[in-house]
Amino acid sequence: MDNMAGELRDNRGRGDAEWSFPAIHPEGRKFGIGAVGISLLFLLIGWGFIGWPLLVLSAGVFAFFRDPERVVPQGDRIVVAPADGLVSLIAQVPPPPELQGSDGDGAPGLGAEPVTRISIFMSVFDVHINRAPIAGTVKRIVYIPGAFMNADLDKASEENERQHILIERGDGTRIGFTQIAGLVARRIVPFIKPGDTVAAGQRVGLIRFGSRVDVYLPAGTDSSVLLGQSVIAGETILAETGKHGLLEGVSQ
Rank of each mutant, 00 (worst) to 15 (best):
A83T: 05
Q74D: 10
V87C: 08
G75V: 06
D105L: 15
Q92I: 01
I90D: 01
A107W: 03
Q74K: 15
I120D: 01
S102Y: 03
L99I: 11
I118H: 03
Q74C: 03
V124M: 15
P96D: 05
A83V: 12
R77V: 09
A63Q: 13
D67T: 02
I78P: 05
P97R: 14
I134S: 10
V71W: 13
A107R: 14
L89A: 14
I118P: 02
G109D: 03
G75M: 05
R66P: 07
P73E: 00
F64H: 07
S102D: 13
I118K: 08
R77N: 13
P108F: 00
F121S: 13
G104Q: 10
M122A: 12
F65E: 07
M122R: 09
Q100I: 06
D105N: 14
I118R: 09
F125D: 08
G75N: 08
G104I: 04
P82L: 03
A91K: 13
L110T: 12
Q100L: 01
A107I: 15
F64Y: 12
S102N: 14
V71G: 06
I90K: 02
D84W: 00
H128Y: 01
P97K: 09
I134H: 02
S123M: 07
L86R: 15
P94D: 01
Q92H: 10
L89C: 11
D84A: 03
P73D: 00
G106N: 09
P82C: 05
R131N: 10
S119W: 06
F65L: 03
L110I: 11
L99S: 09
I118F: 01
P73Y: 00
I120M: 04
P114Q: 02
E69P: 03
I134C: 05
A91M: 10
P96M: 09
H128G: 08
M122K: 11
A81T: 05
P96K: 14
V115H: 06
L89F: 09
Q92R: 15
F125M: 14
I129N: 09
R70T: 13
P133Q: 00
L86N: 04
G75A: 04
V115T: 14
G104T: 07
D67R: 03
G104R: 12
D76W: 01
G111W: 02
F64D: 08
M122D: 04
D103K: 12
G101I: 02
P97A: 15
P73T: 04
T116M: 11
G104Y: 02
A91G: 05
V72Y: 02
G101T: 13
V87M: 03
A91E: 10
M122F: 14
P133Y: 00
A91N: 07
